[in-house]
């Protein structure tokens, strides 16, 4: 321990302590509501407003049973609907984006620039202008209040196409496409057997983006659906909370429902972390 080393090392240590403290404070702020819902869903209706907020209780399974009993398991139907909307919607959207992105990155054809610019403008279109006319147009086709009303609009993702174009340009060498053509593979076969596997990493990101966007969406299903058997979890919980305003006994079900609803996405995040290294400006993904 020499005195010489202190002036140079001390600021470094302080800074690191400050940085660590700030990061942990940020983490605490972000975890607080999640911790709260975990504890609150273990409380009975009586305990919710009477015992100390962060004191856990033992009624989690009673609450889950009560929630499951609500109108013959309607809650689980909402969860299944959400999985359907997000899973099918994101899968279809990813395939459509991959095809469009591949065409825009690897082919030359008249109108290419215009088409790409229109799709880019679509990224910045605010959903507000789409919601009501989408509803009215689907109503004319008699498709509102069906699964299709939520699924079809989620199939198109301008941002997904933009990302897919970048991935196709970066990950698919033109020589390999030529080679595949010389081998006599058709365009669709080349796409399915050569292009899609090469774009895989990027397409997982496109899928996740769209999956989360659909899973979290509220306004579109809220407008499109009237039958609560078709609701996704967001619209269902919103309705349940509205009921709770008049019968506070519902609150434990709302809170338990909120907890269960975030478990699948959190699990998805933790397992697929590396796909979330997204460079928004460049559109690149660093895995």
């Amino acid at each position: 321990m020499t005195t010489v080393s202190l002036p140079t090392r001390k600021p470094g240590r302080n800074r690191s302590a400050v940085a660590t403290t700030l990061l942990l404070l940020g983490a605490a702020y972000c975890l607080l509501p999640v911790l709260w819902v975990l504890i609150a869903s273990s409380k009975s209706a009586g305990e919710l407003f009477s015992t100390f907020t962060l004191a856990p209780s033992t009624h989690l399974f009673d609450n889950i049973a009560e929630l499951s009993g609500y109108r013959d398991g309607l809650y689980w139907r909402w969860m299944a609907n959400t999985a359907l909307y997000a899973g099918v919607g994101a899968a279809a959207s990813t395939l459509i984006s991959a095809m469009a992105g591949y065409a825009l990155a690897k082919f030359d054809f008249p109108g290419k620039g215009t088409i790409f610019n229109i799709i880019l403008a679509g990224v910045l279109v605010p959903g507000v202008i789409l919601a009501i006319p989408q509803y009215l147009l689907l109503a004319k086709l008699g498709m509102t209040n069906t699964y299709w009303a939520v699924l079809l609009p989620s199939f198109i993702s301008p941002y997904g196409i933009y990302l897919a174009r970048i991935f196709a340009a970066a990950a698919v060498p033109t020589e390999i496409l030529e080679a595949s053509r010389i081998d006599g593979a058709g365009d669709w076969r080349t796409f399915a057997k050569v292009v899609l596997p090469m774009m895989r990493t990027g397409l997982v990101t496109v899928f996740l983006f769209q999956f989360v966007a659909i899973w979290n969406n509220f306004m579109l299903p809220y407008i499109m659906l009237g039958d609560d058997k078709l609701y996704p979890i967001t619209v269902g919980l919103n309705g349940l909370l509205n009921q709770g305003a008049s019968q506070p006994a519902m609150y434990t079900s709302v809170i338990t429902g909120a907890l269960i609803s975030i478990v699948p996405l959190i699990a998805l995040f933790l397992t697929l972390q590396r796909y979330w290294q997204v460079d928004l400006a460049a559109g690149g993904v660093k895995a």
Binding site: T234, V254, I255, F269
Partner: peptide, 23 residues
């Protein structure tokens, strides 16, 4: 810290509002 701060992105706005609303 990175995972904790990113975690709220997995929580739909409706659920986030519900949790904070109670808090």
């Amino acid at each position: 810290a990175r995972i904790s701060i990113f975690l709220p992105y997995a929580v739909p706005a409706v659920v986030a509002s519900l949790l904070w609303g109670f808090l």
